[in-house]
Structure formats: structure tokens, C-alpha cells
């Protein structure tokens, strides 16, 4: 069973937090590679995809022997969603599972998607802001695979990918950031525009993660052509440092100017968590946001720590919730969510 291998809680690689964890949940390096002379997955039919998967797996499984292999068309749709909910698979496996595969490391920090949007797509993640370690480890995998399969490459366009947005280094550096301070101080538009100018995209994790209590955003590099990997790493680190600095300053600012309003929001969150009997998915995200900020700013004492508050994001999602509390209709799920969240608060007591 998937849930026994990967418990439906915080993924292991995230469970020890990391540097600047109050602001940066995780840092990821994602490489995209294709095989020379072979049509991309979007031009292959089901049979060709499956044949190609067999051949590709045969070539790389020795390099990835520490990984567990899942053929995504054999997985149930809720299993695929389970992996995506916890950042342990590329989202493409939800839409195009046929002929695709997923290699996943034991702690889930590394995954390799096969026949998704491209032939190979692999990611290494680290908790907190340590993008350099994530990048160096991803590079080790890339270099190992390079000895096993010939990558599609041209001296002009670099590593060739199905999307023109990724050709060149075909490396994307990505961060999950929690920036309620920036939001409260109306600095979001400024930050977004500033990042856009430096070739970085800022977008919400999903629509439901947006709330007035703060937000989780994905920040990722958007340029892969005309910039080498070390330059990209340097500029991404610089940009991340700026976001962290901006968020800490904004938090200090709101805590000095509007402490009572912030405390009010967060303590109301605790109140809901303690007494609510029904918590919808969107409200769950909002609560997680508020409690994460409360834990980071030591507003809520020992009621809940930052790791448990982060875990609420994961366990409040539909498949995780169903795995932990059982299947049911929407009302049952919302009731179960309220009960589960309440148990987290008790744990922290």
C-alpha cells in the first residue's frame, strides 16, 4: 500500500524544517531532459509510450535502484493525486498517466517523472532555503543519467524540451514561500513586479491557498536560455534572500504597528480550531496559514509548532484526509477535517 510506504502526513524530507523555514517551506531544482532522436511524449500514441517507457526504464533503473518505481497508469487516480498533493510527483501525471512512470526516493525528496510532458523530468527538494544542496544533488542525478541515455541537445538551443519555455539549461529552480507579512503590508504587487523584471515568476500554490491570513506562493525561475546554471543559481539565491528579507521586515513592521489585529486573527484561528465541528478545505488552508504565522511569531505559545502547522496544509487536502480519516461525502470530509485539525492542537498542548 502506498500510504504505508509514504505515510499521509508531512513528507519525510520536509519534517525537519530547514533554514528560514518560517518563510521558505521548500526549495527545489527541477531538470527536464529528452532522448536524442525520439519524438516527445505528446507525439507518441499509447502503445509507443508504453514501449518507450519499458526501454527507458530498462536503461535507467540501475542508476535509480534506490528509488521505488510506479507505473502511473496502474496507479489509481487517488494514488496519483496523493503523490501530487504532497509534492512527490509532477502534476502532469494527473492528466497524462498513460505510458508514464514515477521513480520516487524513500524520503520523497527526489522524484523522476518519465514520459510526462517530456521523456525525463526530475526534481530534488530540500526543506527551507537551501537551494544550493537541492541543485547539486539534482546535478548528480543528471550526470549519472547522462551516462545511460543520450540527451537531446543542440549547441544553439541547449537541452531540447517539448516546451520552448524550458529549452537551454532546462533547469528550473523553485521555492514555496509563505509571505503573509508582504501581503498584509500591501507589498505583494511591488514584489511580483520586481521579480518579473528579474525573470522570476510568483504565483499562488493554488486558488484555494489564497486567504486573507497569508498565502503560500510558488516562486520559480523563468529563464533557461542564455543563462548558465551557476548564474541561475546565484540570481535565484539573491532573489530568495531579498524575498526573505522583505518578509521579515514586513513581519517586524506589522508586529510593531498592528500587533493586536494580527494576534486577533491568529487567536480567532485557534478558537475555530478548538471549537469548529465543520472545516471546509479553503477554510483549512486559511487556518494553516494563520497558525503557521502564529507559530513563527511565537504568538500562540505551545499550542502548535511550525512543523505541525505546516502539516495541516498536507493533511487537510482531500486524498490525505480520506487516507487518515476514511472516505465520505463533502460534509463528512469537512467534519473529519475539523476533528483532525483539533487533534493537532491537542498534540501541541
Amino acid at each position: 500500500m502506498i500510504e504505508s510506504i509514504y505515510p499521509p502526513k508531512l513528507p519525510e524530507w520536509l519534517s525537519s524544517g530547514g533554514e528560514d523555514f518560517e518563510v521558505v517551506l521548500a526549495s527545489e531544482a527541477v531538470y527536464v531532459r529528452n532522448i536524442d532522436g525520439k519524438a516527445f511524449p505528446n507525439r507518441l500514441n499509447e502503445m509507443e509510450l508504453k514501449d518507450f517507457r519499458r526501454s527507458l526504464v530498462g536503461n535507467i533503473e540501475n542508476t535509480l535502484r534506490a528509488f521505488k518505481l510506479w507505473e502511473t497508469d496502474i496507479l489509481r487516480s487517488e494514488d496519483r493525486r496523493f503523490f501530487v498533493e504532497r509534492f512527490s510527483a509532477p502534476v502532469e501525471i494527473l492528466e497524462r498517466p498513460i505510458g508514464a512512470a514515477l521513480f520516487l526516493s524513500e524520503d520523497e525528496s527526489k522524484w523522476l517523472g518519465l514520459n510526462t510532458s517530456d521523456h525525463l523530468q526530475f526534481r530534488v527538494a530540500k526543506g527551507g532555503s537551501d537551494i544550493e544542496t537541492a541543485y547539486r544533488n539534482a546535478r548528480i542525478i543528471e550526470e549519472s543519467l547522462e551516462n545511460e541515455v543520450p540527451f537531446a541537445y543542440s549547441s544553439r538551443y541547449g537541452f531540447l524540451t517539448s516546451r520552448p519555455t524550458e529549452c537551454g539549461t532546462a533547469l528550473v529552480l523553485r521555492f514555496y514561500v509563505h509571505i503573509p507579512g508582504v501581503i498584509f503590508t500591501d507589498g505583494f504587487i511591488n514584489l511580483r513586479d520586481k521579480l518579473l523584471k528579474s525573470g522570476t515568476v510568483l504565483r499562488p500554490l493554488n486558488d484555494e491557498s489564497l486567504s486573507s491570513e497569508g498565502h503560500i506562493f510558488i516562486v520559480h525561475t523563468a529563464h533557461t536560455l542564455g543563462i548558465d546554471e551557476e548564474e541561475l543559481l546565484g540570481s535565484a539565491q539573491e532573489m530568495l534572500d531579498e524575498i526573505i528579507q522583505m518578509e521579515y521586515e514586513a513581519r517586524a513592521d506589522i508586529m510593531s504597528k498592528a500587533r493586536s489585529q494580527i494576534e486577533n486573527k491568529i487567536m480567532r484561528g485557534i478558537g475555530i480550531l478548538t471549537h469548529a465541528r465543520i472545516i471546509a478545505k479553503r477554510e483549512g488552508y486559511a487556518l494553516a496559514n494563520a497558525l503557521r504565522l502564529g507559530a513563527a511569531e511565537s504568538i500562540i505559545g505551545d499550542a502548535i509548532d511550525i512543523l505541525s502547522a505546516t502539516e495541516l496544509y498536507f493533511v487537510g487536502q482531500p486524498v490525505h484526509l480520506a487516507r487518515l480519516t476514511g472516505e465520505g461525502d463533502e460534509l463528512t470530509a469537512d467534519t473529519n477535517r475539523a476533528e483532525l485539525f483539533r487533534s493537532y492542537l491537542k498534540q501541541g498542548d
Binding site: I35, D36, N59, E143, E146, N147, E148, V149, P150, F151, Y153, S154, S155, R156, Y157, G158, F159, P164, T165, C167, G168, T169, G199, A222, H223, T224, L225, G226, I227, D228, E229, E231
Partner: peptide, 25 residues
């Protein structure tokens, strides 16, 4: 998209090794 039209940076491995990888594939 990229404000550039040419790749900058490394390619796939050493020349000899690349030939060998192609043949193995």
C-alpha cells in the same frame, strides 16, 4: 520568453562518453 536566443553553459558530458552513451542506447 528568455530575452535570449542562444544557449549558454554546459552540454551533455565529454565527447567520447557521448558516443558511447549513444551506442549503448
Amino acid at each position: 520568453i528568455h530575452s535570449a536566443t542562444y544557449h549558454k553553459g554546459r552540454g551533455p558530458g565529454k565527447e567520447g562518453l557521448q558516443d558511447l552513451t549513444h551506442l549503448k542506447w
